Simulated assay, not measured.
Amino acid sequence: MPEILTSDGVRLHYEETGTGTPVLFVHEFAGDHRTWEPQMRYFARAHRCITFSQRGYLPSDVPTDPARYSQDRFRTDVIEVLDGLGIERAHVVGHSMGAYTALHVGLHNPGRCMSVVAAGCGWGSKPADRDASIQLCEDIARMFREEPIEAAAFAYARFPMRNAYEAKDPRGFAEFARWLGEHSGLGSALTMLNLQLKRPTLWELEDALRTFSVPLLVIVGDEDEPCLDGSLFLKRTVPTAALAILPRCGHTVTSEEPAAFNDALSELFGAAESGHWLVHKLGR
Results as ranks from 00 to 15, higher is better:
V10S: 09
Y14Q: 08
Y14K: 07
Y14C: 09
T17Q: 15
T17I: 08
T17G: 05
T19Y: 00
G20N: 09
T21G: 01
V23R: 00
V26F: 03
V26P: 02
E28S: 15
D32K: 02
H33C: 06
T35F: 12
E37C: 00
Q39A: 14
R41M: 04
R41T: 13
A46E: 14
R48N: 05
G56Q: 10
V62G: 07
V62W: 08
P63C: 01
Q71G: 04
R73I: 15
R75G: 00
E80P: 09
V81I: 13
G84I: 06
G84H: 07
H91T: 12
H91W: 01
G98F: 07
G98I: 02
G98A: 09
A99V: 08
Y100W: 10
T101R: 00
H108G: 01
N109V: 00
P110T: 12
G111H: 07
R112M: 07
C113P: 04
A118E: 04
G120A: 13
C121I: 06
G122L: 10
W123D: 02
W123H: 06
P127R: 07
S133C: 01
I134F: 07
Q135P: 00
Q135E: 15
D139W: 01
I140D: 01
R142G: 02
R145Y: 13
E146N: 13
I149H: 05
A157F: 03
R158Y: 00
F159M: 14
P160Q: 09
R162W: 08
R162Y: 14
A164C: 09
Y165T: 06
A177C: 04
A177P: 12
R178F: 05
L180A: 06
L180T: 08
G181V: 01
G181H: 05
E182Y: 01
G187R: 09
G187V: 10
S188G: 07
T191C: 14
N194R: 10
L195E: 14
L195A: 03
P200H: 02
T201W: 10
L202F: 11
L205H: 00
A208H: 06
R210W: 08
S213A: 15
S213G: 12
V214M: 08
P215W: 03
V218D: 11
I219M: 14
E223F: 03
D224S: 05
D224E: 08
L228V: 14
L228G: 02
G230F: 04
G230C: 09
F233W: 14
L234K: 07
L234G: 12
T237C: 08
V238R: 01
T240C: 02
A241H: 10
A241E: 10
L243Y: 06
L243S: 04
I245T: 15
L246W: 09
L246C: 02
P247Q: 05
R248D: 15
C249H: 01
E256Q: 14
E256I: 01
D263K: 11
D263H: 12
L265V: 11
E267A: 12
A271V: 01
A271D: 14
E273L: 13
V279C: 00
H280Q: 14
K281T: 02
L282Y: 09
R284E: 07
